[in-house]
Nucleic acid binder design. Structure first.
Lengths: 224, 224
DNA sequence: GCCGTACTTTACGCGCCGGTAGATAAGGCG
DNA sequence: CGCCTTATCTACCGGCGCGTAAAGTACGGC
């Protein structure tokens, strides 16, 4: 993690390899220090190269950060999308698979998650992060609109709620990774089940009646 | 909001009043520009005072930001706590009131919310924000442990999930405030009902059985 | 009307960091 | 074995923004 692959100062590497090294280092440093807190020198040091190399392979600091964002966002989204599978299956089953993939991605790409969700929400990158979040939420909205048989516009706020719930659970678990699971089951699966225990019945209730339990008022009016 | 009470440059004010002015301006600027993006000059300009005065009443930039954090955190927590009421009433009713208060606080203190949740999660203030979030989550955990009849350690992750869901819904609504409500009902109440529609049945199910719907596995084992 | 003091204007020091220019070596190729 | 391409380094510049110092100005009590 903290050690660079090449100890001697000078080693010529293929550009793509260097670029990957720099990106990895950038994700690590940005996740720990935040965008403003991270210096290009720190990224260079983490990558085991000198600063100008960072500029050669990563461009300016903004471009480098944007590159980190895009790569990690694509990784996360790909994982979730491919796990969700195609429409036609039971929505709650698809949702469960998607959630498992989401939490699993967390366990394997913690730095990327941190960069995406804790560091990038401010500054000129809010748009970038919003785009990712929106894509995930759209995915969830499709799923729910499909399962609930309601227009997407109605499902959208519920999708945001669901994604927020997943993030809340994820943040809790990241802060205390030993707290979930009995040690034998995959933590990601345990987390997905916990989340489904909370939101699953509500979603099912929304499917049957148009509103559930004590929340019976004008909740979902479908107005924009 | 953007206008200062005293147009002429010189006005002698009681220190506490000035301090409040400076704090208000700081919250506004920090919420718009972020911690690093905001300059002390900008805060001074927003408050309608000169920069040295900001340092007199607000201390260093870090201290000023911390002061903003504390004030807004206390405001939000007070609103939610006092709305939740005392134990003994039906947990879901208390939860509903707390949620309404939470969303209502959003509508009246948007800048404060933004500072707390979108600007302060990084840097030396992550601890401060974590403290607030933890206090709110603890509140929710008490509520759920009470209603579910389970140990707090078990209720804690569900509390995080619930708070995350509220934040997700809040962020969605802040991005598109016209999307919720039919125009006659209080948006905060509509949002609370929407959230309860999703998580209410799940919470009830957790109360009865020890797990709900398709999530039947080892989800809640009570292990630390 | 006069002093204390809250406040302003102005100017500056200083450290940090993004970004770059010019020197250096690494290694394939003949 | 020497040369040329180019990946890489050392060293540096400039700006920005925090924080403060110094000197002047008007408000309001006595």
């Amino acid at each position: 993690m903290t050690s660079e692959t090449s100890r001697p100062g000078r080693q010529r590497l293929a550009p793509e390899v260097r670029r990957r090294q720099v990106l990895d280092a950038a994700v690590a440093v940005f996740s720990e220090e935040g965008f403003h807190g991270a210096s290009m020198d720190a990224v260079a040091a983490r990558a085991g190269v000198s600063k100008p190399l960072v500029y050669v392979h990563g461009g300016s600091k903004d471009e480098l950060f944007a590159a980190c964002l895009h790569r990690e966002a694509d990784r996360l989204l790909d994982a979730v999308q491919s796990a969700a599978g195609a429409p036609g299956e039971a929505p709650l089953v698809r949702l469960r698979r998607a959630l498992r993939a989401f939490f699993h991605a967390l366990t394997t790409q913690r730095a990327g998650w941190t960069v995406l969700y804790r560091q990038a929400s401010t500054g000129p990158f809010a748009g970038e992060v919003d785009a990712l979040r929106r894509r995930i939420v759209e995915e969830a909205a499709d799923l729910m609109a499909d399962g609930l048989g309601v227009p997407r516009a109605v499902a959208l706020p519920y999708a945001h709620t669901l994604v927020g719930a997943a993030e809340g659970l994820a943040d809790w678990w990241l802060g205390d990774p030993d707290a979930a699971g009995d040690g034998v089951a995959e933590p990601a699966d345990v987390l997905a089940d916990m989340l489904l225990a909370v939101v699953g019945p509500g979603i099912e209730a929304l499917t049957n009646g148009s509103s559930g339990s004590i929340a019976s008022s004008s909740s979902v009016s479908g107005e924009r």
